[in-house]
Computed example of a mutant assay.
Amino acid sequence: MSDSTSLPLRYVGNCGVKVSNICLGAMTFGERPKAGVALPGQCDEELAHSLLDKFVALGGNFVDTADVYSGGVSEKIVGSWLKKQEREKIVLATKVRFPTGTGPNDVGLSRKHIMFAVEESLKRLDTPYIDLYQTHCWDDGTPLEETLSTLTDLVRCGKVRYLGLSNVTGWQLQKIIDLTKTKPYEPFVSLQVQYSLLCRQTEWELQDVCKREGLGILPWSPLKGGWLTGKMTRDGGAPAGSRAAWADEKKMFLQSTPGFSTYGNDDKVWNLLDVLQSVAKETGRSQAQVAIRWLLHQSAVSSVVIGAKTLSQLEDNCAAGFNNWTLNEDQLKRLGEASDVPIPYPWEMTWRCQTGRKRDGVVPV
């Protein structure tokens, strides 16, 4: 395999570990134990292992899961595959925060829950350590100092190598970072956050904080539940078996699974999809590849987290990260303009007032 058709590596934020610029997310691995909740297109163990094998063959080394994906089954599947690999060649990420049981302490970022959850994740993953341990969401119920000291202990005892965050607001992210500077807490190296041509709000605060503080952005839902793949049509609706069709049927409109009804009457979205299709034709690439490649052009992005339920889908999405093609300035401009959203106060005013005041590169603090 030539270098141009193998996934290149990037540093994760300001730390010394390198990961493939495409990360294989394992949310599609395993059926959810609770009947009637399973998303369409979930993978059994055999298919998941085939996807993981192919991902590594394409140059991938970065795998992301979470303790709540498929009720822990995702971690078990990744763990059974990991036993057959050279452990040090894989950068393994998982998460903690959401409910893993019915008890009052089976959720959150308390010392009690984190210490229990990390041991359970290590058992399911069948590994002595986790490379990147991420808080899955902000937790109002736990003082930050309690969470930060607990995570620091996990790094210092060797169960975790690096720390990451996910799903926080701008002020929450900055507060967390500032606290790690005031006491000997382990710093965070990454932020996993929703980011795509249909979710540009990440740029309002989170992107700037990551650039200034040296965190790598790991976008999740880069294709917005299939909306950026080209499978949706204004007249045809959502294809049967798609996540958009499932969302409408179940009336479960999650951030990662918007239904057809979410955007079906939005002319701006259809205009974006027209531009995306046009750029895909110009580049000879799929619309999914163009959408993922657009993210790889954005500042502070270290790796894009993709999901896959077939080998062909995995190969197509991974090809977005190869170095044998790119988007030109005109294509980036058209995609940016078509996907841009109105900027509310105070962001609009503060940005407008920075004319002539922007610095190049990282801004010193």
Results as ranks from 00 to 15, higher is better:
Asp3Cys: 01
Leu7His: 01
Leu9Tyr: 11
Leu9Ala: 09
Val12Arg: 00
Val12Asn: 01
Gly13Lys: 04
Asn14Met: 14
Asn14Pro: 08
Ile22Tyr: 02
Ala26Val: 05
Thr28Met: 05
Gly30Cys: 01
Glu31Trp: 00
Arg32Glu: 08
Arg32Val: 14
Pro33Val: 01
Lys34Asn: 11
Ala35His: 09
Ala35Leu: 07
Pro40Met: 07
Leu47Ile: 03
His49Glu: 13
Leu51Ile: 00
Leu52Lys: 07
Leu52Cys: 02
Leu52Gly: 08
Val56Phe: 11
Val56His: 15
Ala57Thr: 12
Gly60Asp: 05
Asp64Lys: 03
Glu75Ala: 04
Glu75Ile: 02
Glu75His: 10
Ile77Leu: 07
Gly79Val: 08
Lys83Pro: 00
Lys84Ser: 14
Gln85Pro: 04
Lys89Gln: 13
Val91Trp: 02
Val91Asp: 00
Arg97Thr: 13
Pro99Gln: 11
Gly101Phe: 07
Asn105Lys: 10
Val107Lys: 10
Gly108Ala: 10
Lys112Leu: 03
Lys112His: 13
Ser121Tyr: 14
Thr127Met: 04
Leu132Glu: 07
His136Glu: 10
His136Cys: 09
Trp138Phe: 15
Asp139Gly: 07
Gly141Gln: 13
Pro143Glu: 01
Glu146His: 02
Leu148Asn: 05
Lys159Ile: 05
Lys159Gln: 11
Tyr162Phe: 13
Leu163Tyr: 06
Ser166Gln: 05
Ser166Phe: 11
Val168Lys: 02
Leu173Ile: 11
Gln174Ile: 14
Gln174His: 09
Lys175Phe: 07
Leu179Gln: 08
Leu179Trp: 06
Thr180Tyr: 02
Thr180Gln: 10
Tyr185Gln: 04
Pro187Asp: 12
Pro187Gln: 06
Pro187Trp: 05
Gln194Arg: 09
Tyr195Ser: 07
Arg200Glu: 11
Glu203Gln: 14
Lys211Arg: 15
Glu213Arg: 13
Gly216Lys: 01
Ile217Tyr: 00
Leu218Ser: 08
Pro219Leu: 12
Pro219Met: 05
Trp220Phe: 14
Leu228Ala: 04
Thr229Asn: 03
Lys231Ser: 15
Gly236Ala: 14
Gly236Phe: 13
Gly236Lys: 10
Ala240Val: 04
Ser242Trp: 07
Ala244Glu: 04
Ala247Ile: 09
Lys250Pro: 02
Lys250Met: 15
Gln255Thr: 11
Ser256His: 14
Tyr263Ala: 06
Asn265Lys: 15
Asn271Asp: 14
Leu272Asp: 00
Val279Arg: 03
Val279Ser: 11
Val279Gln: 08
Ala288Cys: 06
Val301Asp: 10
Val304Asp: 02
Gly307Thr: 04
Ala308Arg: 09
Asn323Val: 05
Trp325Asp: 00
Leu327Arg: 03
Leu327Trp: 06
Asp330Thr: 13
Gln331Ser: 05
Glu337Asn: 14
Glu337Tyr: 09
Asp340His: 15
Asp340Glu: 15
Val341Thr: 15
Pro342Cys: 01
Trp347Leu: 09
Thr350Trp: 10
Thr350His: 06
